[in-house]
């Protein structure tokens, strides 16, 4: 029922998973539970809750489980955040602790809404 991992070109949320279509589709590449990766997860979650409530979906990809997934987005370091939607794709490397840099990198408005 779900699309496999190999189907990396699929940016539109799969209707079979029940995920509603969202404006911001963010993919966070991590490698296991290293400190910067864990921090990146929580920083991104907080940032999205504050600035993109209800408009985002985060996909967490652990490259330890499947390193070949790094190829699709040409990941060379983790953690890396990739904005899949809206186009064009944009990448930010690091633990996402500097909110202004992340917002600028993603070209998001400074305040929520």
């Amino acid at each position: 029922m779900m699309s496999g991992h190999s189907d990396e070109s699929q940016d539109v949320p799969d209707p079979a998973t029940g995920n509603p279509a969202v404006e911001y589709y963010l993919r966070l590449y991590v490698a296991g539970q290293s400190p910067n990766c864990v921090r990146a997860v929580d920083n991104l979650t907080r940032l999205c809750e504050e600035h993109l409530p209800g408009q985002y979906r985060i996909e967490l990809i652990d490259l330890v489980e499947n390193p070949t997934l790094a190829r699709g987005d040409e990941i060379v370091a983790v953690p890396t955040l990739v904005r899949r939607l809206p186009p064009p794709p944009r990448k930010i490397i690091g633990d996402l602790s500097q909110t202004e840099n992340v917002l600028a990198g993603l070209q998001l408005p400074e305040a929520g809404g």
């Binding site: 779900m2 991992h5 539970q33 990766c37 997860v41 929580d42 979650t45 967490l60 652990d62």
Partner: peptide, 28 residues
């Protein structure tokens, strides 16, 4: 494993099986 904000970072095969779920959707 779960982050401080309660985000799932990792789920092993057994837990995914117990939840009858896809790890890709459980993680994150």
């Amino acid at each position: 494993t779960v982050s401080e904000r309660g985000v799932v970072l990792y789920v092993n095969l057994m837990l995914a099986a117990m939840l009858a779920g896809d790890r890709r959707h459980l993680v994150g």
